[in-house]
Design a binder for these strands. Sequence first.
DNA 1: AACATTTGACCCTC
DNA 2: GAGGGTCAAATGTT
Length: 355
Amino acid sequence: MESGWSWDQKSLIGELIQGMELTKQLRAELGSASGEESKGSLVQGILSSYEKALLILKWNGPMNQLQMVEATPGLPSSPISVNGSPSSDDSGRVLKDPQDSRKESKKRKTQPRWTEQVKVNSETGFEGPHEDGYSWRKYGQKDILGATYPRSYYRCTFRNTQNCWAVKQVQRSDEDPSVFEITYRGKHTCSQGNYLAQTCHSPDKQEQKETDGDHHELQPLQENLFGNQTIQNIEKLENKASTFCFGSSSTSVGCKDIVNAGFSSLAIDTHSALGTFPQSFTSPTSPDKNYFTPSPCQRSNVGGTHSVQNLDPDVHEIFSANTSATNSPILDWDFPFDSDHINPNFPFNSQGFFY
DNA sequence: AACATTTGACCCTC
DNA sequence: GAGGGTCAAATGTT
């Protein structure tokens, strides 16, 4: 691997490779089906685009700054606004409100923002992460002009206790109701954020923890990921989906039975797919608590097909984290990650990346 | 009692 | 004034 690649560039490459691999899998599946030639050509086009992107990256070599990564909807990619650079639409605001809370509110708006798109796959169940490992508390909901579904507002549960000002917005996509757009704003400064960063940012560490059967260190996180309400939600769903948790992580009590059953067993039954869920499951009023997503740590193994997409056109510095290993973009924010920390198994030089 | 959600009202920006 | 974001009282849940 060439030296001088920043870790975010490598992550970008990793995401591209991952996307390419997934596309290849799709092509293989399509190839086995009859009458899928046109789709196959589309997939080939996608693959070609991936290859070109990788070639361009390779050709340009290490860059000081990634200027732009335009995520293709539906394709695995993870461009995220980063470096703590605030979105221009939020920058330059003047704090003139006398009330502290309002000040904080505006201060928060100056923080970076990025959007994660989470897809609920009607065919195979849920895809991609939604649960990001943090505890959120809903503080508002608004009907958005031109949007079919309301937007929900969440803040970190530890805002008051730990002065953590991370917030997120969850809105169901009009175009594709199976997609939820989650806009994060602000960085977690709570202990939970620190904990997650420590436990999850190293794929090696994480893998070890998950494979050696010692869940003691992960337990608090897991308990956070699958809250009390989670279990009860499941019960309310009348056994519609008995193998997974819904989680807004709004509580901190575990869902140990399910967790201990192993992440790999958390597959979502097709029964649970959108459209067959009870109303409460697909309710737009609180979409993010009503479907399962793997935890940040899980994602490294699950390899969910989520995309993290910065939709703010004003943010030019975009980085792509290896979300399959690191999960929440929040964690990636000040990810203490350098070349020494890169998983040697990370396939930068595999799958024909460097031809 | 403690915590979460709901929802109308308020504030800010455009 | 419209729309988006947040607050906080009321209400629900555990």
